[in-house]
Nucleic acid binder design. Structure first.
Lengths: 194, 194
DNA sequence: GGCCCTGATATGTTATAATAGATCATTAGG
DNA sequence: CCTAATGATCTATTATAACATATCAGGGCC
């Protein structure tokens, strides 16, 4: 039987990939070198417990000790939910891919539009956030408007409005991020408006 | 909010105590110094993952990563089962306490009986083992016979038989102990008949 | 072909887990 | 009072995680 540590590390990698994060994204988020994340996920190091907890939490997981007798029941719950979660992940993917296409088209057709830089930045950051259904709905509405954009100057206020909506959404989510406990490696205090 | 690591370490201590093991018992079982177990349980060290897995397994637990959304469901399963587990623990305690009383009485009334030393040793070791319901039933039957023991020489074959049954049970359980994976610290290969 | 992004690997330094062993303070039982 | 068992604390040594930084190889896209 495979060591449980291999399964745990595989779960970490799957959760990271499922969140659409690269190792560098996760590194930026929690302040651990990308090379170290690679080593961890590949089993090249025997992780400290506090580091495991920090990584797990960054990926919306918790470390739990479960009586062996209950392992089948717990695994069943996790399995059922991860098919639901992959539905969520698929929805997220779908919305973000369509939004990406709209943003790409926007940049091609209106490359000099005011507010475009800010819209690009807000969108890039939103792509790295955990997004609930209400946030995805906001992005979907913005995408719809960008898809219907006219070619003429009437587009400019729509672009401006889209930029504002995405930035408001980005700021709302960024401000909601809770402060994590400091483990073996600590999150640097971020100045998010910098 | 308490750090997850504190909860995990508390779960380890509770599981050890629930198994009726002292830190020295656990130390002997998994080959880690008792002082280190004390430090771990008290939060004085940031445990390696492989060490956590080894400790958890020695106490019939597994380390699992659970999506945060599912934590309430998983905690509910564990909570419900731990009241069942404490029923098990109570049954175990009850059977072992009564057997202990029978063995104590036996040692007082028949201190020179052949086989008594072996019975004492088998019983002491059995007290440190994980015991299922069938094992507890064997111990209960032996206890019943010891409780009904006559004062005269007719007791001797019953004592001998009880000694044999407990030693058979002890050997059966000792031989069933599975080999564990070798973590940061490895179980020494034990010569159990030594 | 060049650029960008990704995960993996390498080197060097520092802090600490793991180990061994001893000892202490407390509690319970005879 | 003495003994035994327990969990906690201490000292010294060794192996390695964590971190910083650089670099590599592969794949995708233009």
């Amino acid at each position: 039987m495979a060591y449980a540590t291999d399964e745990i590390l595989q779960t970490l990698r799957t959760a990271r990939e499922g969140s659409g994060l690269s190792q560098r994204d996760l590194s930026a988020r929690i302040g651990v070198p990308q090379s170290h994340i690679s080593k961890i996920e590949s089993g090249g190091t025997d992780l400290r417990l506090s580091s495991l907890v920090e990584l797990a939490r960054a990926l919306d997981h918790e470390v739990v000790l479960v009586p062996r007798k209950l392992l089948p029941a717990v695994e069943a719950i996790v399995r059922n939910a991860s098919s639901a979660l992959s539905d969520d992940a698929r929805l997220r993917s779908s919305v973000l891919n369509r939004a990406q296409a709209a943003v790409t088209r926007l940049n091609r057709l209106h490359q000099d539009a005011p507010g475009l830089d800010r819209l690009n930045q807000a969108f890039r950051e939103l792509s790295n956030f955990q997004l609930g259904n209400s946030e995805l709905e906001v992005i979907r509405r913005v995408t719809d408007r960008l898809m219907k954009l006219p070619m003429n100057r009437n587009a400019l206020p729509v672009i401006q409005s889209a930029s504002n909506q995405l930035r408001e959404l980005r700021n709302r989510i960024a401000h909601a991020v809770p402060e994590a406990p400091r483990p073996a490696y600590a999150l640097d205090e971020e100045d998010e408006d910098a």
